[in-house]
């Protein structure tokens, strides 16, 4: 169970990316976070595994205080939480297999990994994982030779190597076309059904309605919407726009002002 309490993040330049955000994620949920670009979605996800240190507030993961953890303790927490990214964040010059193997770095002997060697059982696990997400044929290709959808699958395989209890997905399909977006989200849904909690930020209402078990909406770092599975499926375009609403209108007005 993930508990986020009064999370606030102020960047050194004064931007308030998160403003007193609190919510709880039960195990097995598929929580989707919606909001405009710059509303704090990425910051929120990164505060959960401390890629970004929050300014205030507390994140508790399975009764461990993530915000207070440091060094080895933090790395042990991180390895239980997989993460996939909008731009995949693969190491482009390494092979698909090495990228997948790197997901296991939190578990293996650090000295072995220096020589880019992994134990045989880890390599077997990587082969099985690649099989699972359907990229076995690409194992020896360089990551930058792959298409966007394939790269995101490698990203998912890397996260799965961690044997995660939770996956954080930061706009995992924004860089993909709609068909691939459904494929990737179906993969995530499948993992969710196997019991992995998923926190995912998304833009498109149809995708949100199709996959979410719960939704929170962020605007200017604040939670402005909380919806259950039923509520989100009943949502109309108008209501969805309300979350983005005023902001979008303001942009329109702004344009007409500057245009005049």
């Amino acid at each position: 169970m993930l508990v986020v309490e009064n999370l606030t993040k102020i960047y050194p330049d004064g931007t308030k990316a998160l403003d007193n955000v609190s919510f709880t994620v039960e195990d097995g949920e598929f929580l989707i976070i919606i909001g405009l670009s710059g509303s704090g979605k990425s910051t929120l996800l990164r505060c959960i595994n401390r890629l970004i240190d929050p300014t205030e507030g507390r994140v508790t993961w399975d009764d461990q205080d993530v915000t207070a953890a440091s060094g080895p303790e933090l790395r042990r927490i991180r390895r239980e939480i997989g993460m996939i990214f909008q731009h995949f964040n693969l190491v482009k010059r390494l092979s698909v297999e090495q990228n997948v193997l790197s997901g296991r770095l939190g578990y293996v002997n650090p000295n072995m990994a220096l020589l880019q060697r992994f134990p045989a059982d880890v390599r077997d696990q990587a082969r099985a994982t690649m099989e699972q997400v359907g990229i076995s044929a690409l194992a020896h290709k360089r990551a930058d030779e792959l298409s966007g959808g394939q790269q995101q699958r490698v990203g998912i395989a890397r996260a799965l190597m961690q044997e995660p209890k939770m996956i954080l997905a930061d706009e995992p399909v924004s860089a993909l076309d709609p068909v691939l977006a459904h494929n990737i989200l179906q993969d995530l849904e499948g993992l969710n059904k196997q019991g992995i909690t998923v926190l995912c930020s998304l833009h498109y209402l149809d995708l949100v309605q199709r996959y979410a078990t719960r939704v929170i909406g962020l605007r200017e770092g604040k939670i402005v919407y909380r919806g259950s599975r039923e509520a989100i499926r009943a949502m109309t375009d108008e209501e969805f726009k309300d979350i983005y609403g005023e902001e979008a209108v303001r942009i329109e007005t702004g344009r007409s002002v500057s245009g005049g």
């Binding site: 964040n89 790197s102 770095l105 650090p110 890397r158």
Partner: peptide, 20 residues
């Protein structure tokens, strides 16, 4: 990006340098 990703899997500093 890759540095962030390797950090997120729970790698230590030296592993991050070697891999990312």
């Amino acid at each position: 990006g890759p540095i962030e990703a390797i950090n997120a899997v729970g790698a230590n500093w030296i592993q991050t340098v070697v891999y990312a």
